[in-house]
Design a protein around this nucleic acid. Structure first.
Lengths: 255, 255
DNA sequence: ATACACCTTTACGTTACGTTAAGGTCAACA
DNA sequence: TGTTGACCTTAACGTAACGTAAAGGTGTAT
């Protein structure tokens, strides 16, 4: 004949303390109290508790719930709409926080590299950050989060020696590219050697090589004015296109 | 020679109580204490407070901030990343809450209409809700949010009389459609009259008529099995297709 | 009779302060 | 020199929604 606190709690999947607390704040009073002082709840209280838990699940405060359960349905709607507005504001706020935290993380990561390995003069991080910012979404969509995360991680964890080697290889790529462009043929042996060197260069940051990704990157070199400008300036005008064509042939992705 | 609590508070844009609280929890201790017991802060404390407020703005707990400010930069990064994960989870949770609250609001609005205007027997809201759920995104993308919002609003604000008229017109559409199908020709006068009646029927909920939207709806009738089933059952098999063809001719959208 | 599961009330802890309240301090002004 | 007003101090309660003891009574099965 009626549920005790623990029984009701088990029924509703909450703690007995919560039931007592709801009694304390007059949100849910027991149907009656036994001679020994035990709280006893009936069907009506079970129903009311269901209502309470429903609104609670929506994130409403207990005070509001209390008012709601004793108010006409009109106020109920108004309260829900007000609550929705609050939630929307909260979401915006959380999004702002996320943006700021991510910005800070990027900044700190840059700082660490700079202090830990001073020689890198911030260039690496800048590259990673820029890459991420500009192509993050795109590359992630194409090749998955893991690929790019691993690439960035590898990049940051390079030792100074590795970084020097990597830079030297990069210069070799540029030199060979210049020589290859003299042949005028992206399929020439020299041009293909350039593509091969470029592949080795990539392997410093990619943990496994992928022809499609390599070809995709080559296309990006041309599509992105920053990259185009870089190659055009470091080698000669048209270098980005030439490198792209050489790589497309090298990877066999030239349709 | 040093800031008092109020001076520091004004400098940082926080309350004196906050400063004292930070002292109490050993987050920010004064540089020294005057003979009279006044807390006095120097430049180092100002700097530390800046740091504290920065992390606080990111939503970090004071305990975490305290640990951060006395830990190497490595932990700092880890803490920020952990915090970011938390924020992402919170955003998901808030989004879930929003979705549920909105669902509940829709439900309650339906209920109100039902109690306010009992005759509507819930059909309207069900239609609106179903329409929204199934085609909301699609229609919104095509015709803009305003169109559909106004349609739903108009729908809900119909008087019982209007609703009755609307239903009668709906029945007329069905009757005429049945007769028109006997001609076998969607271009026939009767079929075109059906399309015209359907247009009038639509005008009950659309605040301005749009040929393209009308044609789009007609195509949807065939694409959506629920609508197809409805017309096929209310009229006869093939009714949805026939109505669509008639409307496409009526609107001149039959390619 | 006793063990065990359950009940009760009381009350502190949680977060980051806001808000009195009671009383001391400092600089300026009459 | 006294007083005023702005400031300082500590202490303590209030906030939301319970979790978690602690101390002691109840119900029932063995």
């Amino acid at each position: 004949m009626g549920y005790t606190v623990r029984q009701l709690a088990r029924l509703a999947g909450i703690s007995p303390r919560t039931i007592r607390y709801y009694d304390e704040i007059d949100l849910l009073k027991p149907a009656r109290v036994s001679a020994a002082g035990y709280r006893l709840y009936g069907q009506a209280e079970v129903d009311r508790l269901q209502q309470i838990l429903f609104y609670r699940a929506l994130g409403l405060e207990l005070k509001k719930i209390k008012r709601l359960l004793s108010a006409p349905s009109f106020d109920e709607l108004a309260a829900l709409k007000e609550h929705r507005t609050k939630l929307l504001a909260k979401r915006r706020q959380v999004e702002l926080l996320i943006a700021n935290v991510e910005k800070t993380i990027a900044l700190k990561e840059g700082k660490i590299t700079m202090t830990d390995q001073e020689k890198f003069e911030g260039f690496k991080e800048e590259l990673v950050a820029e890459n991420e910012e500009k192509y993050g979404a795109e590359i992630r969509a194409k090749y998955g989060d893991e690929t790019i995360d691993r690439a960035n991680a590898a990049f940051r964890n390079m030792t100074a020696q590795q970084y020097a080697d990597w830079q030297q290889l990069g210069n070799e790529v540029l030199d060979t590219l210049k020589a290859a462009m003299a042949t005028g043929d992206p399929a020439s042996a020299l041009a293909q050697k350039t593509a091969e060197l470029h592949r080795q260069w990539l392997n410093f940051s990619w943990d496994h090589y992928d022809k499609a990704a390599h070809a995709g990157l080559a296309r990006m070199y041309v599509a992105d004015p920053r990259f185009t400008a870089y190659y055009d300036e470091q080698v000669q005008p048209g270098a980005a296109e030439f490198l792209r064509d050489a790589i497309l042939i090298y990877t066999g992705m030239n349709q």
